[in-house]
């Protein structure tokens, strides 16, 4: 490791000068996974509650199969769809509109197909929702009938019962979201296709193209061996990703539901 720890803090990536910094990729990873998580929280809790508590039995199994199927679609297919359909859509209907409001300075300016940290976040949220939802659904199903009975017997409305049930399974929800966050952080193929893979000084602006750790590795590996230190730089990035997953895993083990 020629640079030591400073590689983590630097923002430049210049193979010609053998100068590597992975800070933009770390920031990109955390921003995209966090936005995805916030959206997935709402989406996965909603779909799980809808399936378990609201839908009549026949519709219930249909919706369930659809959500499970969504979790079974290979991520590279999400990437292709994200690149040619989702990103242009988001660019036209969200990013360009926000820029028109004069907020480009804050959010950055989209380019080309709209590939950006923002597109990656939205795509990730779509991808991790079915996955988190399947864990939350199991949690909701495992609530004993006598707990449901007591909530109803206290004259709670349907919605009040649902809120109490969600509090009852909060550790399962935590587990689901932590594991989903881990997936979002480590997701490679889909993110590498929509994140833009460009290093800019605007790496913290979500509408600008950027990098995540995994997309940096995926994007740079083909020419890594042509340079003296790039392989080590990519391994450092990999090590950082490894530690991030390790932390998430340990958190799940400590605070999460025993699975």
């Amino acid at each position: 490791m020629r640079d030591g720890f400073s590689i983590v803090l630097k923002t430049s990536w210049n193979p010609v000068k053998e100068d590597y910094g992975i800070l933009p990729a770390i920031v990109g990873t955390i921003i995209s996974a966090s936005i995805a998580l916030a959206l997935a929280l709402v989406l996965s809790v909603s779909t799980s509650v809808l399936i378990v508590e609201v839908l009549p039995r026949r519709l219930r199994s249909l919706a369930e199969v659809l959500v499970d199927l969504a979790a079974a679609i290979p991520s590279v297919i999400y990437g292709l769809w994200g690149l040619y359909i989702l990103s242009p859509f988001l660019k036209e209907f969200v990013m360009d509109r926000v820029v028109e409001l004069g907020l480009g300075g804050i959010f950055g300016y989209p380019r080309g197909l709209g590939t950006s940290i923002f597109s990656a976040s939205i795509l990730l949220s779509i991808m991790i929702t079915p996955f988190a939802a399947s864990i939350i659904r199991v949690g909701l199903r495992s609530i004993p009938i006598h707990i449901k009975e007591v909530l109803a017997s206290l004259a709670l409305t349907k919605w009040e019962v649902i809120v109490m049930e969600l509090k009852y399974i909060r550790r399962t929800i935590f587990t689901a979201l932590a594991v989903a966050y881990g997936r979002a952080v480590g997701e490679t193929a889909a993110v590498a296709m929509v994140v833009g893979n460009t290093l800019t000084t605007d790496f913290f602006k979500v509408f600008s193209p950027g990098y995540t750790i995994s997309s940096l590795i995926a994007d740079q590996y083909p020419n890594a061996e042509a340079y003296t230190y790039m392989v080590s730089a990519l391994f450092t990035a990999g090590l950082f990703l490894f530690m991030l997953s390790l932390v998430i895993n340990v958190l799940v083990m400590i605070y999460g539901e025993k699975r």
């Binding site: 004993p144 006598h146 707990i147 009975e149 007591v150 909530l151 017997s153 109490m164 509090k167 009852y168 909060r170």
Partner: peptide
């Protein structure tokens, strides 16, 4: 009101 077979205070 109702009281059940299993003592079921809400554990959380």
């Amino acid at each position: 009101g109702m009281v059940f077979q299993i003592p079921n205070p809400l554990p959380h």
